[in-house]
Design a protein around this nucleic acid. Structure first.
Lengths: 133, 133
DNA sequence: ACAAGCGTACTATTTGATTTAATACACCCA
DNA sequence: TGGGTGTATTAAATCAAATAGTACGCTTGT
């Protein structure tokens, strides 16, 4: 697959994290499914005008997370979707995410019920982004 | 006030952002209210074992946001709570916060209704944190 | 008027992460 | 065997974060 996306070189978010983010989202939304091959390191690097090491780093971290699998000499493939985190870890992560969300929206003066309504409304939009063609 | 909190030096989040975060949260939750004076730059710097410049940077950004006001020669004080952002900016920020939240929770395998329920449950907990004594 | 306490500004330096660069190696498959 | 794959290594360049030290101007209380 060609993995159509661009990166923002000047961004405070490191390039390798941007790459991870794009791929995570594509897996989360089903644009990439189990068994799909990611572009070769050198190919994606050329496409993004970026050093192969940077792409390799992104792939390595996704591999460490268990989201993708690297089959040596063959390529990197989307892993079967399984329970990645323990119950405790999931709670920790949810808590962190929720607090960050509150931190970022506390000064928007949006009442909680309205906030929840807008979140529910935003979810399908997030999920439908980059739909499978 | 003494602003009891610590910072994590090894963290990927810069120290000045950690300081901003703590103060923003205290304002958001009412632990700090309009007119309250923040600790002097040098005092907070000593308390956190951090360079005064780092604290000054945090204060400067909070001032730029309009959350606090610097009265020259007197100190930095919590500003009157007003509408800080335009409608458009508020929407932009909500959208960004929502997407980041989805990014961070997409692999937790929590169904959306459960997610919303837990968010609503977490809100009072967030708000009651560090209550006014 | 003075001194103490406050925010602010400036320059210089250190430190660490990010990114690029250039190789090199091992594996898989036609 | 050869081309394509992931991976490892070392070196260098770049940039933001943080520290250090100093200085200036403002306000307040004496």
């Amino acid at each position: 697959m060609s993995l159509q996306f661009d990166i923002t070189p000047g961004s405070p978010e490191p390039i390798y994290e941007q790459i991870e983010g794009h791929i995570r989202r594509q897996i989360a939304t089903g644009s990439l499914v189990e068994g799909d091959q990611l572009p070769p390191v050198r190919t994606l690097a050329e496409q993004l005008t970026v050093n192969p090491n940077t792409v390799a780093r992104a792939y390595a971290e996704l591999t460490a997370e268990g989201l993708v699998e690297s089959r040596t000499g063959r390529g990197v493939f989307v892993a079967p979707r399984r329970q990645i985190f323990s119950e405790e870890e999931r709670n920790r992560r949810f808590h962190r995410a929720a607090w960050r969300f509150f931190d970022e929206t506390a000064f928007l003066d949006i009442p909680v019920p309205e906030m929840v309504r807008r979140l529910e409304a935003a979810w399908p939009d997030y999920f439908r982004k980059t739909p499978t063609p």
